[in-house]
Amino acid sequence: MNIERVTVEVLETPVESAYTAAGNQVSSNFHVLARIFTDDGMQGIGFDVVLRPTLVKSMAQTCQELGQLLVGMNVLEIEAARAKLERASGWAGPGGLVNMAIAPLDIAMWDAKGKVLGQPLYRLLGGHKDRVRAYASDALWYSLPLDDLARSAQDHVALGYNMVKLRLGHEAKPEGEVQRVKAVQEAVGPEVQVMVDATESWNEGQAVASGRALQEAGIVWLEDPMSHQNLSGLAHLTDVLDVP
């Protein structure tokens, strides 16, 4: 069960329809894909996703270099492997690009471990349920017109989803954000829960104003309202809003 070889590659997967997310025009998704091969023929696969090509090659190169440090290790010793990779990253890590480069390797080891032991990952991680609720968030971009947004939400519900997540954060006023939520709510009905991801687009004042308006509109989840580095602003928002 020792790791014999690690390979890393970059994959580009074109999207069906181009969209705007987090301020970027997206026509393809980019994946850093790692494969771990063991001496007894097992293969583990892991990848992460990036919405634009910037630094993807750097991530892949970092992943490739770190991956070679796993050769010879037992594929079941995931915590030891991650600690080794973080130590090797030195002052360049363990956050940021290094974390994203380690992620495909970490996932690949978990994949291999589950295959070796013949167990699903939820059980290896201590889970006791074999079902979890899932939400849909594809094709619910802030760049879509309201009619297209509503149709996309209806398509997800037709597939069996009862939760959908919209991207917001680019309307001039809170009322504009609420209008997009209302369009989806009217399209899918009261049994479907609506969540919101503002893609870190607001400043603190905008987050408070829009958060209050969206809370009143009935959203059940507000994600990434402002920069993740604005800890005091996020704490303040938590104090003034009830929605998680």
Rank of each mutant, 00 (worst) to 15 (best):
L124S: 09
I45A: 00
A150S: 08
W91L: 15
V98C: 11
M59R: 15
Q64G: 08
T20R: 15
A34T: 03
N230D: 15
P94S: 14
V6L: 09
P190I: 11
S201A: 14
V220W: 06
R167E: 00
C63P: 03
L124I: 07
L168C: 04
L241A: 03
L146Q: 09
I78G: 13
G218K: 11
N230I: 04
Q68C: 02
T13L: 10
G72A: 08
N99E: 13
D40Q: 14
S210R: 02
E79I: 09
W141I: 01
A103E: 04
R87V: 11
A158T: 15
M73N: 11
T7F: 03
Q119C: 10
E171S: 10
R82E: 15
R35V: 02
L70I: 07
V26P: 00
G169L: 00
G114K: 12
L166M: 05
A88R: 12
T199S: 03
L146F: 05
E86S: 10
K113T: 15
V116Q: 15
L241W: 06
E175F: 01
F30R: 01
K173I: 08
I3Y: 10
D148F: 03
W221G: 04
L97G: 01
V26M: 00
I107E: 03
E79D: 15
A172I: 12
A198P: 08
N2M: 13
I3H: 08
L237K: 06
L214A: 05
R123F: 09
G233F: 05
T238A: 14
K173V: 12
H156S: 08
L231W: 08
L70N: 04
A88E: 10
V132H: 10
L11H: 13
C63H: 05
H170K: 04
R52N: 07
D155F: 04
G189F: 13
W110C: 04
H31I: 00
E171I: 00
S201M: 07
V157Q: 06
N99M: 15
A217E: 14
A92R: 14
G118A: 10
T62I: 15
Y122R: 05
T54G: 02
F47M: 12
R167M: 00
N99T: 13
K57M: 11
G118F: 09
E79M: 08
A101S: 14
G176H: 04
D224M: 08
Q185H: 09
L124R: 10
P225A: 01
E16G: 03
L70K: 09
A172P: 01
M109F: 06
G118T: 07
G114V: 10
I36P: 07
G114C: 12
P190C: 05
A183E: 09
G127M: 11
G126N: 09
A92V: 12
W202C: 00
S58D: 05
K173L: 10
D224S: 11
T54N: 07
T238M: 13
T20D: 05
G118D: 11
L144N: 06
G72P: 08
S152R: 07
P190V: 03
G44K: 07
